[in-house]
Amino acid sequence: MKTKFAVFLLLQLILISCSSTISTVKKEYILNNSKELKSDWAINSKEWILKNDTLTGNGSLSPWGVLVSKKQLPENYEIDFKVNMTNASLFEIMLNLDKGKYIRTYLYQIDQNIVIGDGVYDKKDDSYGKRGGKTLFRKPMKLENNKWYSVKIKVKNNQLSFSVDDKTTLECSLEKSNLNQKGKLGFITNGEVKITYLKIKSF
Results as ranks from 00 to 15, higher is better:
Tyr77Gln: 03
Pro63Lys: 09
Asp80Asn: 15
Gly129Arg: 14
Thr189Leu: 01
Gly100Ser: 14
Lys71Phe: 10
Val164Gly: 06
Leu160Glu: 06
Asp165Lys: 06
Val120Lys: 15
Thr56Lys: 14
Ala6Tyr: 08
Phe5Met: 14
Thr135Glu: 09
Met141Ser: 04
Lys26Cys: 11
Ser163Arg: 02
Lys35Val: 03
Leu179Pro: 09
Ser39Ala: 10
Gln181Lys: 14
Lys199Ala: 12
Ile93Pro: 01
Lys51Leu: 10
Phe203Trp: 08
Leu95Met: 10
Val151Ile: 15
Leu170Met: 08
Ile22Gln: 01
Asn190Ile: 07
Leu67Asn: 03
Leu95Thr: 07
Thr135Phe: 00
Ser177Arg: 07
Asn52Arg: 14
Gly119Asp: 05
Tyr29Asp: 00
Asp165Trp: 03
Glu192Cys: 07
Ile22Arg: 00
Val68Trp: 02
Tyr121Met: 12
Asp40Trp: 01
Gly65Val: 11
Gly129Ala: 15
Ile14Asp: 03
Ser39Pro: 00
Asn33Tyr: 05
Lys4Asp: 10
Trp64Ile: 08
Lys176Gln: 09
Thr196Gly: 08
Ile79Gln: 06
Val68Met: 15
Asp53Phe: 13
Gln181Ala: 04
Phe162Tyr: 15
Met85Pro: 03
Tyr29Phe: 14
Lys101Asn: 14
Lys99Leu: 10
Leu136Arg: 13
Lys176Ser: 09
Glu144Ile: 01
Ile114Arg: 04
Pro74Ile: 11
Val25Phe: 08
Asp111Gly: 13
Gly186Ala: 02
Met94His: 05
Val164Asn: 04
Lys130Glu: 11
Asn96Val: 04
Asn158Lys: 12
Lys154Met: 09
Thr3Ala: 11
Leu15Pro: 00
Gln72Ile: 07
Lys46Gln: 13
Tyr197Val: 00
Asn52Gly: 02
Asp80Lys: 15
Tyr149Arg: 06
Lys134Pro: 06
Pro140Asn: 12
Ser45Asp: 10
Leu31Phe: 00
Gly191Pro: 13
Asp111Gln: 14
Val7Pro: 03
Met1Asn: 11
Glu92Gly: 03
Lys156Thr: 05
Leu97Cys: 03
Lys199Trp: 04
Lys51Ile: 02
Ser163Cys: 05
Thr196Asn: 15
Gly183His: 11
Leu10Asp: 01
Leu107Ile: 09
Ser127Asp: 12
Asp125Lys: 14
Ala6Ile: 12
Arg104Val: 06
Asn44Ala: 09
Tyr102Cys: 07
Gln12Tyr: 01
